[in-house]
């Protein structure tokens, strides 16, 4: 998958998790939503790891792919074009 498409899909899954998380904060015993959260989180982890291995770090702390130089500083940063 190309970089922009993968980032877009990851952003969508992250959003699903962010929204479900807030719902679960006030409905922690809704087991259907807990199951849904878990399944989205599993899918998201696969995409997240794929993205980082192909295109570099999204979080410095979960990335160990830098070789002789520090990939974290690579452009673009989120506010850049």
């Amino acid at each position: 998958m190309d970089k922009e498409k993968l980032k877009y899909e990851l952003t969508a899954l992250d959003f699903a998790l962010a929204d479900l998380k807030l719902y679960l904060d006030t409905h922690p015993d809704c087991s259907d939503s807990v199951r849904l959260y878990n399944s989205v989180a599993d899918k998201r982890k696969v995409l997240f790891d794929t993205y980082q291995s192909l295109y570099g770090p999204l979080t410095a702390e979960t990335y160990s792919g830098s070789e002789s130089s520090w990939d974290w500083v690579d452009d673009p940063w989120p506010w850049n074009k």
């Binding site: 877009y8 952003t11 992250d14 959003f15 770090p57 999204l58 979080t59 974290w72 989120p78």
Partner: peptide, 13 residues
């Protein structure tokens, strides 16, 4: 934990 992307895409040109 800082994540190097936006919550929603911004494509202002």
């Amino acid at each position: 934990l800082y994540e190097k992307k936006l919550q929603f895409p911004i494509n202002i040109k």
